[in-house]
Design a protein around this nucleic acid. Sequence first.
DNA 1: CTGTTAGCGCATTCAA
DNA 2: TTGAATGCGCTAACAG
Lengths: 326, 326
Amino acid sequence: MSTVYDVARMAAVSSSTVSRAINTPDAVSPATLARITEAIARLGYTPNKIARSLQSQTSETIGVLISDLTNPALVKIVKGVEKVLGAAGYTPILCDTEDSPDKEQRYLTDLIDRRIDGVVMVPVMDSHAAALLQQRGLPAVFVDRSISPDFDCVKINNVSGLSLLVGHLLQLGRQTIRMIGGPQRTDVGQERNDAFLLFLERYGLARDPDSVICGDFTIEDGYRITHEMLRQGRRPDAIVSANNLMGIGALKAIREAGLKLRTDLDLVVFDELGELGELLDPPVAYVSQPSMEMGVQAANLLLERMRGHVTRAPRCVVFEPVLVRR
Amino acid sequence: MSTVYDVARMAAVSSSTVSRAINTPDAVSPATLARITEAIARLGYTPNKIARSLQSQTSETIGVLISDLTNPALVKIVKGVEKVLGAAGYTPILCDTEDSPDKEQRYLTDLIDRRIDGVVMVPVMDSHAAALLQQRGLPAVFVDRSISPDFDCVKINNVSGLSLLVGHLLQLGRQTIRMIGGPQRTDVGQERNDAFLLFLERYGLARDPDSVICGDFTIEDGYRITHEMLRQGRRPDAIVSANNLMGIGALKAIREAGLKLRTDLDLVVFDELGELGELLDPPVAYVSQPSMEMGVQAANLLLERMRGHVTRAPRCVVFEPVLVRR
DNA sequence: CTGTTAGCGCATTCAA
DNA sequence: TTGAATGCGCTAACAG
């Protein structure tokens, strides 16, 4: 691999001039610039970003940590983030933390050691990333979930979402509604669960200790919990799933129990189910987040903060969900 | 951020000793090692990987380029790759090329400028990545698709796959089978299309110019082509989709045409449809790749090659698909 | 076992 | 406009 010195020698100039030709072409006379350009082309020279980073103390790199690449909504967020960062000249480094706090921590420290300039992340459950970020003073934006009030974040309005979901079930004439809740130890889980109970009350629906059974946002938990709900004495006539994955698990359990959606009971879900979700028969209604735009927004917040607004108070952008009837 | 010098000062040693304490602790006396460890802890020092890379001419980093993060099979490949690389001490940098040759090229040059040590990639259609990799002499492994005989690759046996698919349809008593083919300009597409025609012939089934209509492995193409097939005079009694995404499109078109799977016609698909695919009613049979293992294998091939077997002739590992009846 | 010296490739002073 | 000198943080070579 050729270096600035190789180029310099071939163009009969000094290395500094080559450097200038690349970074501030206006500061170089047209004649020498031409010679240098020529030499660069002939050698196939490309600047060593490692060396550049060491010198400039910046890497033009952003860590993008996602808790689950299997989740179509999260993948869309990534697409939004990458679009904006790429256009701004940054290279996103994507990491799949697989909802493991350990993996998240490992990736994060590694990225920090690589001197990334910022972070956009969907934190894992039980994340302890905030402390690390804070300590390093690294600009960061949380998406979907928030784990610290000290950072910018982009979220969905969970109360609206549950209002839409419960409202839809009421329209269908459902009365005994139960929820596969999210984990209480996450803000999203808590918000959705609380909102559900709020609307049960507001609409005068039955509410008992079993109204909400919490899971960890996984297919397995959705399956297990639904299974449980269906074999209990009083079977609900509608189920709300706090997220898409648990909704898939619920579908499986309902199918296995030999029950029919629409006739025996209804299922509604927070978050889209992806392309295939549209093809289910009967289809499942859901509220969808504008995931891509959330990613875009998150990236923009990060860019702003990196451009020096480090001291500004943390901002939280909340998007409104949309009910998709099916 | 503190440096080796800060640690050195605090521990009253030289920077090289600090370096040794970190990299070859055995080469340092227990006493000083203790002092250095103490200082590192107190300062919260972590080595700057940028500087380390510049010096060592290696980055312990592997580029992982994937053509489509929306495809569940490809995500599983990523998981396999990351598992192995992570265990081997490498950091995978994941990039979503979104099936765009331009994006692939951009990511790749950027990664090369960052001095990555190797590449695992699912190349995009019309990829021109091979030239770049070859020119830089960068170790690389292709997964799922291959674009050059000069590199290691991990693939699925497409002929077996189509044998299973067509065989299954025959068992169901189908006679007029058409295929939503893959793009002829990719090796996978070509192999699957050819294999399909081969088996039509072998089993003495009708075969005409419309037997295969090719798409670009997208949902949209699957939809469009199926739509076309269904409105033609002689409607097939079975359709084979060359991949999962086009299969989803086919499902959509079949649904819209008011036709019923199983009774009116059958659909079988190459590649799994993901978790939700299992919940379709009626379900869709498919042949599945052991995606995760393919990722594992790919990473292992890369590790071998990076450990100096650079000159060894390219190897191609072929996995056998499995028919999943539904 | 430890310190001194030098260099990885680049960009940024400071002079000329 | 250009070049020489220096340092980013780390590690390897060489002495001691």
